[in-house]
Design a protein around this nucleic acid. Structure first.
Lengths: 165, 165
DNA sequence: TACACTGTGAAATGTTATTTCACACACGTG
DNA sequence: CACGTGTGTGAAATAACATTTCACAGTGTA
């Protein structure tokens, strides 16, 4: 449940192609259309190690497709969000690929302010605590946005090391 | 810890004047300046029952002060955020008054999609769960953004009632 | 007086997101 | 095949949210 790139170096190329293949299979299975634009946007989201903004995607999209405009990107992003293929980080106004789009899950994010990467987690205790909290207020819950900002393990280590020198 | 207006009808006028008085006292005590602009912006935030956007504040500010521009508002909001007198809701790009600015606390929000009001809570279990989750990833936590979206008790009741008719 | 610090005025610009209308294409049905 | 319908896209404009920059005013202090 932890996004692949966050904790260890890895073959990002592999994780992109893998994600795209799974997205295709999933869309096929659901009877929805992963059109070329949508596919390309998903690819660009995965290309970026860190959460990426809509206009950054747009800029890259313009590279091959001169006709791309903001709605092109937002429409694709909306589709991908609906299908659970990506997530939106509210505190960053940015988007990140989802590693396990098969189940519609509730997830949380650990966002590193140093390297800008985000780790996706699905923590039952957090969800449970939030649910109980909402219930206590008579609040009927439909969505939980939890974004934890801080410094990831690797960056913490790097900073400590730099501090010692 | 629950923002006054959210659960029961109340004298909102009283809660505004009360909040302003406490803000004044607090700034005095801290040796920071609650200037007329800052005070006015805080008042406008409290005037609104629901979280309010920067440009909505600006529009009202322009009513009495023709010279107001976006930075006028954002500078005031930045100050108020620093002093803990207001909170920012990331998922709404909006601001809400804080009922207990005396202690710098970690809070969460229950946001009603019906009436648009937000309830502020400080739930220890949520914070604890988030802290444990971060630790498990070796993540050193600096800020938690938790915004729960749903329907508040009153709106739920209202909707149920409407549904029965 | 001179200086530093803090807060404001004003204009421009940057960034993120939506609305609107027209059109193209795929698909199923008569 | 002709025809409607639904879905996705092109293109322009606009809306909504936020920051940069530079000049200047007020206050306290050496």
């Amino acid at each position: 449940m932890i996004s692949a790139g966050a904790l260890a170096p890895h073959d990002h190329m592999h994780c992109i192609t893998d994600a795209l293949q799974r997205a295709e299979a999933l869309c096929e299975q659901r009877g929805v259309r992963l059109t070329p634009t949508r596919r390309r946007v998903l690819e660009l989201v995965w290309d970026s190690h860190a959460p990426i903004g809509a206009y950054a995607i747009l800029d890259q999209l313009k590279g091959n497709d001169r006709t791309a405009a903001p709605p092109t990107v937002y429409r694709a992003l909306d589709f991908l969000l609906e299908q659970g293929l990506i997530h939106r980080l509210e505190s960053l106004n940015a988007f990140i690929g989802c590693d396990h789009p098969e189940d519609h899950h509730i997830s949380q994010f650990l966002i590193c302010t140093e390297c800008r990467q985000a780790i996706e987690v699905a923590d039952k205790r957090i969800v449970q605590a939030a649910t109980i909290c909402a219930q206590a207020q008579g609040f009927s819950l439909s969505r939980i946005t939890l974004e934890i900002e801080g410094t990831c393990a690797r960056c913490s280590a790097r900073l400590r090391e730099a501090g010692e020198n």
